[in-house]
Design a protein around this nucleic acid. Sequence first.
DNA 1: ACTTAATTGGGAAAAATTTCACAGATAGCA
DNA 2: TGCTATCTGTGAAATTTTTCCCAATTAAGT
Lengths: 213, 213
Amino acid sequence: MPQTSSKKKISRNTISRLSLYLRELTRLEQDGKKAISSSDLAELTDLTDTQVRKDLSHFGQFGISGTGYEVSKLKEAVRNILGKDKVLDVILIGAGNLGMALLSYPAFREQGFSIKAAFDIDTRKIGNKTSEIEICDIEKVQEFLKKDKVKIALLAVPAFSAQKITDTLVNCGIRCILNFAPIVLRVPDEVVVSNVDLSKELEVLSYFLRTAE
Amino acid sequence: MPQTSSKKKISRNTISRLSLYLRELTRLEQDGKKAISSSDLAELTDLTDTQVRKDLSHFGQFGISGTGYEVSKLKEAVRNILGKDKVLDVILIGAGNLGMALLSYPAFREQGFSIKAAFDIDTRKIGNKTSEIEICDIEKVQEFLKKDKVKIALLAVPAFSAQKITDTLVNCGIRCILNFAPIVLRVPDEVVVSNVDLSKELEVLSYFLRTAE
DNA sequence: ACTTAATTGGGAAAAATTTCACAGATAGCA
DNA sequence: TGCTATCTGTGAAATTTTTCCCAATTAAGT
C-alpha cells in the first residue's frame, strides 16, 4: 500500500501550538515581517525554540539553517497542516446568550470559519436573524444536514440536552463538536470533541490563586 | 527554610481533571448517590480508574479500600482543594458580545463565582445594566480594585488592547486572568493566566477532521 | 576564500505523565 | 468465622513529551 501521509500520531497539544504559531505568523505577515527564527516565534508564543522546531519537524522541513523561516511560507504550511486552506463550514446549536455571542463573534469569520446555520429549540427564538443567519427550529437540523454536509458543530445548549442532540448530530454526519456544555459527551471514536468549559478554567485559576497565597 | 505546604507541583491537567470530578460528584450528590468507585467516576469523566486515584492521591486519602468514595465527602474535599469553599469574586473587563454573554452566563453564579463589576471603554455601553451589574468606565477599574480586592479578572476585550489593560490589572492586584483575547499575555510569574481560544479549538477540530478523512 | 555567528533538524537524554500491578483493606455472605 | 468480591493507594514500569545537544547549513563580514 503506498502509504502517503505520516503514520505517527500527533498530539492535541502539538496541534494547539501550531494554532498559536499560525496566529503569530499571520500577525507577522500583516506587519510586513519577512523572516523569523524559531526562538523569536517561541518568544511570541511563550514557548521554547526547540519546542517550536520539534513541533514543525513532525510535518516536514520548513526552515533554512542559519536563516530561520520565511514568514509567509511557514504561515501557508501551517494553514495547510491545520486544514485551513479552505473555508470551514460550521453550524451552531443553541441560540442562548452564549450561542448568540458566538454568532456575532468576528474572529470566526476572520479566521476562515463560516457559520452556515443556527438552530434552537425555543420557538420564541426561531425566525430571529443575527449576522445574516436565521435561527431555525432544531427539528430541521436533520433535514439541513442531509443537504448540506457540514461536519463541524458548535454546541451551546444546556448540559441536560447536550447528549441527546449530540447523538442526533453524529447520526446526521457531524464529525467534530466544539462543546460548551459542562458535560462529557459520549461519541463514537471517529468523532472529535473539544470542550470549552469556562467553570473549569475558573476553577483552575482558583486553585492556583489559593496555592500562591 | 521552613517550607510549609506540600512541595510537589501539581500539573494544570491534574487540576482540570479535579474540576471534572467535582462536576460529576455534584451531579451524583444531587441524584442522591451516596458512594462511588474510582472506576465509576472514571467512566463518567471518560478517564481511567487509576488516573482518578492517582490524581486524588496527590492531596490525601479520601477513599475506603473495597468500598470506594463517599460522594458528599469527596465532593467537599475536591471543592476545598480547588479553593471553592468560599465564593470567588471576579470582575469582567469588556462588555462586548462575549462579555455580555459571560455576564448572563448562569453557570458562573451556580458554581460559586460572583461577578462583582464590569468595565468597558465604550462610553455608549457605560451605565447599562445586566443581571444586576452595571457597566462602568474602564478608567474606574483602578479605583475599584483599590477598595475591592478582587483577584480574578475575565478579560473579554479585543486582542489589540488586551496587553495594556492586563498591565493595569496586574498593577492593581489582579492575580488570575481568564483571557478570551487571541493573544499571549505577558504577566509576571506570580500571575496565572488561562486562555479560552475558540479559534484554536476549532483549528484543532479542523486538523483532526482532515486527518480522519 | 576564509572565518565567525546564527540557525535548523533531529537523535538522544531527561522529565513528566500515565498505566500497570499488587499489597492491603473492607464488605457481604455462607 | 472464613472465604470471596471489590476497591483503594502507591511504588514501579511504560509511555509520552520536552529538552538537550550538536552536526550541518547559511549568510555576512573581512
